[in-house]
Each structure stands twice: as C-alpha cells, then as structure tokens.
Simulated assay, not measured.
Amino acid sequence: MEDTVTRCDMDKAETDAKHILNQLGSLSSYLTGMGASAEKDSCFNLPLEIMRKAMAFDVSVLYEVSNVVDNWLILEITRVFDPIGYRSDLKEGEKLILDMDNPEGIYINEVKAYQSRKISHINVPNQGCDMMGFVYLPESLGGGYLFGGDYCGQESGVRDYEASVCEIMCNFLSTILIKTQLEQLAIFDSLTGLNNSRSIKEEVSRICNRFDRKTGAVATIALCDIDHFKAVNDTYGHIQGDLILKEVGEILSSSMRKDFDVAGRYGGEEFLLVLDGTQDSDTLDIIERIRRKIEGHAFGKADKAGNPIPGESLRITMSFGIAENRSEPEPCDALEWISRADRALYRSKRDGRNRTTLWGEALDNEDCQDCQETA
C-alpha cells in the first residue's frame, strides 16, 4: 500500500504543469545544440522522454509519414517507448496503413493529427486517450512526422497545458528539422551521404591553412573513381548506376577513421578521401584495403525500375591516386594538392585501372618524358 501511495505522489509531481513547462527550456537547448551531422530522428529522443516520463504517458511513439494513397495514410513506426508492453501492435520498423475516412478507434488521433496538422487528443471509450501531434516537414525534405503518447491505464484525460506543451514541442521539432535538413543539403551529397563536392574541397583547404600554423603537420588525400562507370550506366541504366554510387559511398564512409578522415563525392563517379595526420605510405595500405574490398564486393543488381533482382549482382573496380602534403619544407596549396592526386589517378587509369598510384615528382617527370616521346 505504501508503494502505491508513493507512486501516485510521484506521478502527480511529474505531471505538474510547472515541471512539464520547465522541460521546454531543456528541450530548446537540446534542439538548438544539434548540428547538421546529427541523425535525422535523434531530435525526437528528448521529446519522447518528456511525453513518457514528465507527462507520465504509458507509451510514447514516433511515426514517420511514409505516404498517402487516396484515403490511406501510411505510417512507419520509427520509435516506441513501451516498457510495460501495453501496445503490442506498435513494432519499430513496421508500417501502419490507416483508413482516414473510417479509422480504428485506437488510431483515431494519428489520423486526426495528420488531417488537421495540429494536436489531437480524442478520448476513445474503453481504450484510454492518447495525444498525437503533427511535425511539419516539406516533402522535399522527407515529409512529416507524428509523435505523442498513450494513456493505456486508468488515466484517460489530457490536460490543456499538456496539449499546449505538445504543440510547442511540435513547432520546435519542425523548425529544427527544417534547419538541420537544409544544413545537410549544403554539406552532404544526397545520393551517397558523403560530403558534397563543395564541402570536401573546403576540407582540403582547411588542412592546407593549418599547415601554415603547425610545423610537422602531414595529411594525405586520395582521388578515386569507378572504372568503366559509363558502361554501367549505358548497359544497366542510370538507376543501377545510382545504386552503385550509393553502395560505394557506404563502403568509403565505413572505411574512414571517425573524427580524423573525411570522404566526399568529388563529382560524378569521382570521390575524394582526406586522411588527416597520415603519410602516403600508411595511406597506401589503407587505400589498398578499400580497393580490394570494392573489388570483392557484390553490388546489388536491379531491374530498370530499380527493383532488386534476387541472386544477381555486379562487380566493379576503382582506381586511386594518392598525394601527400606536409607543412615542411613547403606545403602546396589545395588546388595543386588535388591536382597531384588527379595526376596519380590518371597514371592508375593508364596502367590498366583497378590499382593505386602514389604521386611523386618522378611520376610527373615520367609523364613529361612520355609526352615528349609521343610528340
């Protein structure tokens, strides 16, 4: 009995209006501190915790709006906090298909929140009451979200200030999602998820600027591209080509040292890798591991519509050119640094592809000699 009383007192304290409103200050700091590199759904972690703990909802849930077809609302269940297991129908990764004209009682607030683009907390007899809010996101940035909580026990009423707090949180989330997604578009390539051409070039320039301030600094870049990529597009179509670019991006990204190395899509099927604090001999070992990994990887094959073909795959290879830069005796600028890597890549291509070449003055001298002999 004593435990029950203690729990009730705790719930009342946790759902006190002043306490809940104070959570908004923490949420504001949490959201504004998020950078463009944060995962898209991570901004919902604290709001979902506020729903379940501060407001004492039995369950909190996050849906991503996947699609709307005629009168059907398709939601993907992205996150569920349900420690007691009240809602066995909510499983992360699964999709709900809801009839917007005649929704089931248990999902009525999901439908109403989406239709009104506001907060919905309709009390459903014998099923308690949940509160659902709509988080707006333009279609070009991925569409919207629904998030909220569910009272599954005796408590079945949503207070006015709770609905107001949920609405404020939805507005916060919409603003921060749009901001971070626009920042990501400015930094990251939408197809591969790697840094885009502008930001990877800026990374090279940033390191070059550091050479002026720090003695003994060293870094290496590797320029690489997919061998015979035009033939892939011509034979299998551009959808297949895009799928290969995406997979290559995933391999490169997973092969980089976190917080040290950066991979970017330089343009088309070309990629630029920046390995900070690494000299060319060490970089050669790293790049050769990546090259062999790509050579042995089975890239998923798709039909002209982009649908996977079970049991079928494609093999591709990549060529690499590596160039080192040092603060001493005299570093080269960003343009020349990338040009050196490009010249080394050209040699890899000329020597048969699917190989790695280190830039050196001897390489340039050999190419000059070849040009004179050809002339």
Rank of each mutant, 00 (worst) to 15 (best):
S156F: 07
R353E: 08
K258M: 11
V111E: 01
G93P: 12
V68Q: 08
G216T: 04
G105E: 12
P125Q: 01
T175K: 12
R79Q: 14
R213S: 06
V124Y: 01
S28E: 12
I309M: 11
I108L: 14
K304M: 10
R315N: 10
K95S: 14
L358E: 05
M55T: 04
I290N: 09
C208G: 07
M132F: 04
V65F: 02
C43V: 15
T220V: 07
I322A: 05
G128D: 07
P125W: 02
D82P: 03
D242M: 00
R257W: 05
I84W: 01
P331H: 11
A38C: 12
S28F: 11
V111G: 03
Q181K: 12
W337R: 06
R355Y: 00
L27V: 02
L98Y: 05
G264Y: 01
I106L: 14
I244Y: 01
T357G: 09
S197M: 08
I244L: 08
Q240G: 01
R198E: 02
I122A: 07
E336I: 06
F172N: 14
I178T: 15
R265L: 00
S348G: 12
D89T: 08
D259H: 11
S327R: 10
F134P: 07
C43T: 13
V124D: 00
N196D: 00
N45E: 14
D285E: 14
V232P: 06
S190F: 00
V274K: 02
F211K: 02
N171P: 01
E162P: 01
E336F: 00
D261G: 04
L62T: 05
Y266K: 06
L62V: 11
N22G: 15
A305D: 14
W72A: 11
K40T: 13
A17V: 07
K112C: 08
R265T: 00
G143N: 07
E39A: 13
E269M: 00
T175H: 09
L284T: 15
